[in-house]
């Protein structure tokens, strides 16, 4: 996309909403901005209805600021809290159904590859833990088996938050949630390991606590997906509403897990992806 596309026709500036004008005058398209520049440009996400202190919302903000080419990025989402925020995102984004996000993204990416062979169009899946590890796992894994050129980002808030806090495959063992009234009986689904075994070229776990590290994982995942193969980033972003902590504790909850060693930052890169990243990251510097 060129910025020309959404420029306001002369004479119509007055009737366009302020948010749109802001996006045109100082939005992130075609500008090399990142999370370090947050606060200095108009973000792609407009006011969203997610809860105060939402770790997922914070992750979405950081995610959108991390995109290597926002003007050519299409996001495929799924049912869940992130789907409530996505109608307010200044990108083409698709809400298909619950769980089929990686299937839709597979078809979309292939179509865009055929239509725009010389112009990278980044197709990124952003979905919750329920959509990724439970109801959509089959389609997530098969997109990886096929090596689709898409990045999959799981916003792991460890529950079905949008429907009122039910246990998901990513809830920690023992957690008492709706539909797990005596506590969850099994461990978090080992998604990073599954991703690696399923053939992902790049796998990372991260959290919004460390914004720069978060940005690096997202950028790497998207770049590797462009040319090497499927990639996966798992973002730990706790939910104050359903885990019943104060909204200002979201980041300290992550820090606590980090200290306990329960949550770890990990990165797995195939040699081919490593080589690719060395080339593109070297280019940048």
């Amino acid at each position: 996309m060129t910025k020309q596309m959404f420029r306001i026709a002369p004479g119509f500036e007055e009737i366009m909403p302020q948010e749109y004008r802001d996006l045109v005058t100082h939005g992130p398209y075609d500008r090399n901005v990142g999370v370090a520049d947050l606060g200095t440009f108009k973000e792609l996400l407009e006011e969203h209805p997610l809860c105060a202190g939402c770790g997922l919302a914070l992750s979405l903000r950081l995610f959108l600021a991390s995109l290597p080419a926002p003007a050519d990025t299409v996001v495929v989402g799924s049912t869940g809290c992130s789907a409530i925020a996505f109608p307010q995102v200044g990108l083409h984004n698709i809400h298909g159904l619950f769980g089929n996000q990686n299937a839709i993204a597979s078809g979309l990416k292939r179509a865009l590859k055929l239509r725009f062979p010389d112009q990278p169009k980044d197709v990124v899946v952003v979905a919750g833990d329920g959509a990724t590890a439970d109801i959509g796992l089959e389609m997530v894994m098969h997109s990886w088996f096929r090596g689709e050129n898409i990045a999959t980002v799981m916003l792991d808030n460890e529950a079905y938050a949008n429907t009122g806090g039910q246990e998901s495959g990513m809830s920690p063992r023992g957690t008492v949630l709706n539909m797990a009234p005596t506590g969850k009986k099994f461990e978090k689904v080992a998604m990073p390991e599954i991703a690696r075994e399923a053939g992902c070229a790049y796998v990372a776990t991260t959290s919004p606590l460390h914004a720069r590290r978060f940005e690096k994982a997202i950028r790497r995942a998207i770049l590797v997906a462009r040319d090497v193969g499927s990639t996966y980033v798992q973002v730990f972003c706790p939910c104050p509403t359903n885990y019943k902590f104060r909204p200002d504790e979201t980041l300290s909850v992550i820090r606590k897990r980090e200290k306990e060693g329960v949550f770890q930052y990990r990165e797995y890169i195939t040699p081919q992806a490593q080589e690719y990243l060395a080339a593109v990251e070297g280019e940048k510097q």
């Binding site: 959404f6 407009e46 990025t73 996505f86 307010q88 083409h92 984004n93 698709i94 169009k121």
Partner: peptide, 13 residues
């Protein structure tokens, strides 16, 4: 959905 058009609030539903 190809980011060749105006992107704002661009969702089918």
């Amino acid at each position: 959905m190809d980011m060749e058009g105006v992107p704002v609030r661009h969702m089918r539903d």
